[in-house]
Simulated scan of single mutants.
Amino acid sequence: MRTEGNLTRLDRVFARLDREPERPANIDVPKMSRHRVVLFVATLAFYLAIVWLVVTTSWLVRFDWQVMFFRPYQQWAGIHWFVDYYVVLGQRGPTAVMVAAWLGWRSWRQHTLRPLLTLGTLLLLLNITVGAAKLGMGRLGPHYATVIGSNEMGLGGDIFPSGHTANAVVTWGILAYLASTPAARRWLSAASAVTSLGVGLATVYLGTHWLSDVLLGWAAGLLVLLALPWCEPLIALAETRIFDLRDRWRARRGRTAPAPVPASPVTAPVLLKPRASSGDEVPAARETVTASRSTRPPAHLAPGPHTTRAERTPVTPIGSRRPPHPDRVARGTTPATAAARPATGG
């Protein structure tokens, strides 16, 4: 048995987790403050400016072509293997599974569905906004470019804005959004910003995205994060509805069949043997006992009044050796044959 003095590191970690409050009521839910509104408007203006610069084939498009001709994957070929692994941090499938596992464990520990519902809301908003922009603008990537110096818009592509970059901003930014303390929120915000920046530059290094795609992807992911407080009332309502459905299901499952109603006690007659000391038969006494039977009369009794045992006509059982009824005499009397029989002897 371990004592407090020789606990392992894993034991100390689980002991710390056991002291964590269940379903804390003081969770800091971010609100749409004036500062956040200003950031949202500025990011939206940046988003529209990037789109305008690309649509008008401005200096940003020319810079995209210069970076593409530079071919970073050939200039720094030694880090190609590392970038291939690092860019996975922006893929929607693996990152969503990792973050959902962590937030699911946190939801289970704190007995709240808010982390998982927030992640689902973010991914839904990201797919709608970024997917619509990709399909609407239809820009081709560097590997499929057709005309040098063109913006490659409206040609059936799906890379503008960068999905890897926007997904990295949202997936890792939600950890900062759901942080419990301001210090943790600051550190996680910085870590998610560096991670998403590295993912965007990794796609430019590999030649799968233009630099303008990455800039628009950062803006798209940041817009989704900044707009999330507007969805908090819906998230709280969804959590309440889900818990209500769970409670109803548990109540329906735990409902048992009603217990049978005990029958009222009735009295049943018990016949007692007649006394041996008396000469005549004594009417049998009745003893009342309680029985949990129905109040209906037994099926084997005929309806109507019944006579006592002494008033009934005696019946000789079949195979009995006793004489038939006319030959019986009552106790204490002398039969006629015995009186007429002559006395012998003397």
Rank of each mutant, 00 (worst) to 15 (best):
T3M: 03
T3F: 08
T3Q: 10
L7D: 14
L7K: 09
R9E: 10
F14A: 03
F14W: 11
L17S: 06
P21N: 06
P21I: 05
P24Q: 01
P24D: 06
N26F: 05
I27R: 14
I27D: 08
S33T: 15
S33V: 03
V41I: 10
A42W: 12
A42M: 14
L48A: 14
L48Q: 12
I50M: 14
W52Y: 10
V55S: 13
T56H: 14
T56L: 09
T57W: 05
T57G: 13
F63D: 04
W65I: 08
F69N: 11
F69C: 06
F70T: 12
R71A: 15
A77K: 11
F82Q: 12
Y86F: 15
V87A: 11
V88K: 14
M98L: 10
L103F: 01
G104I: 00
G104N: 11
W105S: 04
R109Y: 01
T112N: 05
L113Y: 03
R114G: 00
L116K: 00
L119E: 03
L122S: 01
L124D: 05
I128R: 00
T129Q: 15
T129C: 13
M137L: 15
M137W: 15
L140P: 02
H143F: 05
Y144H: 09
V147A: 15
V147S: 15
I148N: 05
N151G: 10
N151Y: 04
G156L: 08
G157P: 09
T165I: 12
W172R: 09
W172G: 05
G173H: 07
L178K: 08
A179V: 07
R185Q: 12
R185G: 04
R186Q: 11
R186F: 08
S189T: 15
L197Q: 01
G200L: 00
W210R: 02
D213V: 01
G217R: 00
A219H: 01
G221E: 02
L222W: 09
L222I: 07
L223W: 00
L226P: 00
P229Y: 02
W230M: 09
I235W: 02
E239V: 00
E239H: 06
L245E: 05
D247R: 10
R250I: 09
R250P: 00
R252S: 06
R255N: 04
P260L: 15
V261L: 09
S264L: 08
P265F: 01
A276P: 12
S277N: 05
G279W: 10
E281C: 09
A285W: 06
V289M: 07
T290W: 09
R293P: 01
R293W: 03
R293T: 10
P298I: 02
A299G: 05
A299C: 03
P303S: 10
P305D: 07
H306E: 12
R309E: 14
E311K: 15
T313F: 13
V315L: 13
P317H: 04
I318M: 14
S320R: 10
R322E: 13
P323L: 03
P323D: 07
P324S: 11
V329D: 05
A330N: 11
R331F: 08
G332D: 08
T333M: 13
P335G: 12
A336C: 02
T337Q: 12
A340T: 11
P342N: 04
